[in-house]
């Protein structure tokens, strides 16, 4: 295993949508490894490395709130674009109030996590040069630099981040029944190499800490 890092992330709201409840988004109780990986990649990533999440510390109590918005119901049809490009003229707009859906989201609020992660070489480029990648990540995280603003599940929920060098703070979830419990099956990540297959794991929180199974472990199910 190469260098591990700890990143403290926090934000006002978050939505890690459960794939089984997609029409009206409902967030998982805690951040998924997949969303955590996305946060690290927003700060530093190259094709030469692959981020792997080892552990998630849930610092703040898990609280939900509800938010309903007017949303557009359709995606932009690709064929219409190519057709219009070819013809050189035409109507290419969506009318937001004619193609409208009102969708509610069950959001998490006031979240804070400590993400423990490391990266592996993917075998392309200079992935073997672990010191280089670890240093670049560390420098960026210390200076607050990012490739794009990392977010908590959806882009409207941007997150603050800071490199954690000292001890991991203890969870603020006061009740032991809340901080140690079964979170059920959660999305682990999507396997983009194999037709975007979702992979799941059985998440358990012990004193606010969720251990994440490693790739190729028998605990990762698809």
């Amino acid at each position: 295993m190469s260098f591990g890092i700890k990143l403290r992330v926090s934000g006002d709201f978050a939505c890690f949508s459960r794939p089984e409840m997609k029409v009206e988004r409902v967030s998982y109780d805690v951040i998924t490894p997949s969303a955590a990986r996305g946060i690290l990649e927003a700060i530093y990533w190259k094709p030469a490395i692959r981020w792997i999440i080892d552990r998630i510390h849930v610092i703040n109590p898990i609280r939900f709130t509800n938010f309903r918005r007017n949303e557009v119901e359709n995606k932009i049809p690709f064929n219409n674009i190519t057709k219009t490009m070819k013809r050189g003229e035409g109507q290419l707009v969506q009318f937001a109030d004619k193609e409208r859906q009102q969708r509610a989201s069950m959001l998490l609020r006031d979240v804070e996590y400590v993400l423990e992660a490391h990266f592996e070489a993917t075998g392309t480029g200079d992935g073997g040069n672990t010191g280089k990648h670890a240093d670049i990540f560390r420098r960026r995280a210390e200076k607050g630099q990012c490739f794009h603003r990392p977010y908590l599940g959806c882009r409207e929920f941007p997150c603050d981040f800071a490199l954690l060098t000292g001890d991991t703070p203890a969870t603020r979830i006061s009740s032991p029944a809340e901080s140690t419990r079964d979170l059920g099956f959660m999305l682990w990540d999507i396997d983009f190499a194999h037709n975007n297959t979702p992979m799941f794991f059985h998440a358990r929180m012990e004193n606010g800490i969720v251990d994440i199974p490693q790739p190729n472990s028998s605990e990762v199910l698809s």
């Binding site: 932009i76 219009t84 290419l92 707009v93 937001a96």
Partner: peptide, 13 residues
């Protein structure tokens, strides 16, 4: 791209 229909301009581009 995402318009409100109150802006009823003909979008002949």
């Amino acid at each position: 791209y995402v318009q409100e229909s109150s802006v009823l301009s003909e979008n002949r581009q």
